[in-house]
Amino acid sequence: MSDAKKIVLAEDNSTLSLLLKFRLEKEGYKLLIAVDGKEAIELIEQHDPELILTDIMMPFISGLEVISHVRNKLAKQTPIIVFSAAGQEEMVLKAFNLGANDFMGKPFSPNELVIRVKRLLR
């Protein structure tokens, strides 16, 4: 399992994190969970994951800042999927401008997320 692809998941809703962790680990990925943007950045710098999943609105450091950190500071092209709540269209646009690859509007279906993750990691 050491060659399992690593995914960093930044999400402040711990229940959702746990659900997605289970779901994606069943598919053979290795999940690293961050509860806010700050932790996410630390995990990304430490583990250099193959994919990043991040919520846009998080305490302290937002998802947008995570994207900007990965693309500008670390200059990495790691694929990024952002989660957004209803009515955050403006934020999603900003996320794409900063270099996000895909987005999922909440509420979303975990199965659909798996499909998108697979597509990006193929």
């Binding site: 229940t15 959702l16 909440k106 509420p107 279906s109 975990p110």
Partner: peptide, 15 residues
């Protein structure tokens, strides 16, 4: 509150 925290974020079969 635990049920709700998840219910609000996902859709489909699991919801």
């Amino acid at each position: 509150s635990t049920l709700l925290r998840l219910r609000n974020e996902i859709s489909g079969e699991m919801a």
